[in-house]
Amino acid sequence: MALASNKIKSIGAAQSPLLGAAMFSPAVLYILLLVGGPFFLAIFYAFSDARIGNAEMHFVGLENFRSILQSPSFRVAIRNSFIFTICSQIVVTVGANILAISLEKTFRGRGLIRFLILLPWVAPIALGAIGWKWILDSIYSVITWALVAVHIYKPFSAPMWLGEPRLAIASVLLVHSWRLMPFSTVILLAGRTAIPKDIPEAAAVDGAGFWRTQLQIVIPMMRPIISVAVLFGLIFTFTDMTVVYILTAGGPFDSTQTLPSLAFALGIQGSDLAAGAAISLFLVPLLVIIAYFMLRVAHRAEVN
């Protein structure tokens, strides 16, 4: 009966190709207008002398790229983009695996814990970043207050979390990891629950301990799922400017600037649209590579 019903449905779809196109078109429109349009505009701007407030534009070739390559802030931004992306993914992958292992077991209050862990992902990132800004604030930091209260630091010599370049970089990393951990945890948790129970049980019978089971059986089986989580994490971190913008605004003295935040600072705040566009285009090759791998992983999952 179900088979017959499916057959009727597929025949219906095949007979009305317009229906398929109509259902597909919102996604195509969305991509063309909100992704394709700005992307090609950015390419156009990057080779021009476009400026906010100036209606005229001229072709300047590679001048914008030459100009930004000379900027020390740009070199710092490239370095930071990679540091934030790679380091946060290492922290997130390790942390999310630990959380997924913990949350796989049944225990009292598991639902509440899962809800709390998911909260940073559900809450708007701007809200979370503002919360962290206050937690790490130079005057009102609750962490500093606690450290002073237990006499680890004196009142005026406590660390300035967002004022020292290394601490500021670590703070941005922390917030990125905090934000992405729930997403990865949920994905990995789903992957773990999908592994047939008899496989780790058989391994246990054969004498495999916890680490051996995890490293040689569970994690290799979850590799496609972990890849999905990592690739999404890479994209989210590499293209994000909210955390840096709210937490440090690129400071202290450009030491936490990333490519997206620098593109915004120069292109929008600094009125130099062409330079902003050129900086943002530096993201493209890497994002294309990541997107390629994402599609490959998705295709493999589909085949399996």
Binding site: D137, S138, I139, F156, M160, G163, E164
Partner: peptide, 21 residues
């Protein structure tokens, strides 16, 4: 001075002065 001056936004020095810091 302390490194807090590297973290400031426009209201920060207001807050620092009013907090007696």
């Amino acid at each position: 001075e302390t490194p807090e001056v590297f973290t400031w936004t426009p209201p920060s020095n207001n807050q620092a002065m009013l907090a007696g810091r």
